[in-house]
Amino acid sequence: MPSLKDLRGRINSVKSTQKITKAMKMVAASKLRRAQDAAESARPYAEKMEKVLSGLGAAVAGQAGAPTLLAGTGKSDVELVIVATSERGLCGGFNVNIVKAARAHIDRLIAEGKTVKIHCVGRKGEIILRRYYPELIAGSTDLSAVKWVGFSDAQAIAADVLADFERGDFDVATLFYSRFQSALTQIPTRQQLIPAPITAAANDDDLGDDLGGAVYDYEPSEEDILEDLLPRNVAVQIYRGLLENAASEQGARMTAMDNATRNAGDRIKDLTLVYNRTRQAYITKELIEIISGAEAL
């Protein structure tokens, strides 16, 4: 049986762990709020961009000589997979889930005989991916010095990606990140960046008041505007992914730390029970010793 002193020590250590996890949970909660605000304020730009692009893209897509960022290079032999994860751990299954989704996709591509290149954003995902595909990692971006992702960070990544695309290093680019749904659920998501997917869904009637209803004058031509917008769109999409990721990370951390705090509470309860039982047992034992000693006299 452990001594009373041992038990006291254990209870104290669990208690200080609980204090830490509780503090981390609260920090994550306040960071989550900020990350959500950032994601929210980035929305108008992304939405407008999407509207304009889908309007223009639908008109140009079918034509010959459409920009390669929109129409693709005509093949899909080499795919660049950008995996965005967090810089720090202790956030439950957040990183593992993203990497799992990315791995399923990568393995499928490899099975199809395609070449895969991986670009990692965030240290945590890179560590895992390096273990599985050490020879496929083409590049990585370290954001550990960045406290809150800004558009310039996304732009830097996009500039790298676009430069590689222009050099003809890959044909298709996809981005993996975690979409924020609530503090409890984050959904690992795959998004195609290049060629830009022009969705029919974005082309629905609510476009009517914005583009479809009026005949627009374009200056310079529609193609030129599209040419200008598409690279920018890549940066915007990456930025959106990073923001979603930041919010998801804090959400996942909050949930994980909440669980840890609750777990620690249970442990403390159990240990206190054992402690009290042991203490009583010691007292009883001592009493018996005294009584039987007195009786023997």
Binding site: D217, I225, D228
Partner: peptide, 17 residues
């Protein structure tokens, strides 16, 4: 891109970089 332009109320639909 092709020059400055001023926009007043009820301008015709127009798009420019």
């Amino acid at each position: 891109t092709d020059g400055d332009f001023a926009v007043l109320a009820d301008h015709a639909p127009f798009m420019s970089t």
